[in-house]
Design a protein around this nucleic acid. Structure first.
Length: 201
DNA sequence: AACAGCCACAACCGCCTTAGT
DNA sequence: GACTAAGGCGGTTGTGGCTGT
């Protein structure tokens, strides 16, 4: 790895604006992105004259300013989807967010940490209701380790009893139009894997 | 009314990956 | 291939608002 000389976050902390964004800053950023597009964040940061780093501008745009963004009121359906996707993917919030149109990884991450994490833990504490889901959920503590795994593999159960190996990119159709829930049905079907399939090795 | 504790969420930090030279 | 800058991501923190005492 290259030594970090300047990654945009350490850069002259003294000089950069930090903290909450003001409506005026939002307006300037939106204007600048309109001109330069939601890329080249360093350029956007400079041209907007906001005295913010590129990463900060990017985050603000992605989480609050970009069009078609949904805020709050996560529906039961969405919550269920998040739970299922988390079982499948672990803490890969951007992937999960990619399946929830209008939702951001930051929002889902926050929602998970403040709401769903507790729910899952409560379920885990009730072994009598243990289903395949709860058993898998117990591996959530290791979810971060999923990053070390191949992008193309999802090994759900490290015990070897239920190793589901699949191509995530193939499983999820990442095309722009695929924000519907059809793909979920596929997963839900998969969710009821017959015993013979589960034991396939 | 005042205070403490909790919760939700916006924002930052640091690591990793990718693209460009 | 090596190096650097920039982008992307997940983890963590700071803080304002809410609730209970």
């Amino acid at each position: 790895m290259a030594p970090r000389v300047n990654d945009g976050t350490i850069t002259s902390k003294r000089a950069m604006n930090r903290g909450a964004w003001t409506p005026e800053e939002d307006r300037k950023l939106a204007q600048c992105i309109e001109i330069h597009g939601p890329k080249r964040w360093k350029t956007v940061a400079i041209k907007s004259g906001l005295n913010r780093c590129g990463k900060s501008c990017r985050l603000r745009w992605l989480n609050y300013l970009r069009p078609n963004i949904k805020r709050g009121n996560i529906s039961d359906e969405e919550e269920d989807l998040i739970l299922r996707l988390h079982r499948l993917l672990g803490n890969r919030w951007s992937l999960i967010a990619g399946r929830l149109p209008g939702r951001t990884d930051n929002e889902i991450k926050n929602y998970w940490n403040s709401h769903l994490c507790k729910k899952v833990n409560q379920k885990v504490e009730k072994p009598e209701s243990s289903t395949r889901h709860e058993i898998i959920g117990q591996n959530d503590q290791n979810a971060g380790d999923n990053r070390a795994m191949s992008e193309n593999e999802v090994e759900i159960n490290e015990s070897g009893n239920l190793d589901v190996s699949l191509d995530v990119n193939e499983f999820f159709n990442f095309s722009e139009e695929s924000f519907g829930f059809d793909w979920l049905n596929k997963y839900l079907e998969l969710d009821q894997i017959p015993e013979s399939t589960e034991r396939s090795e």
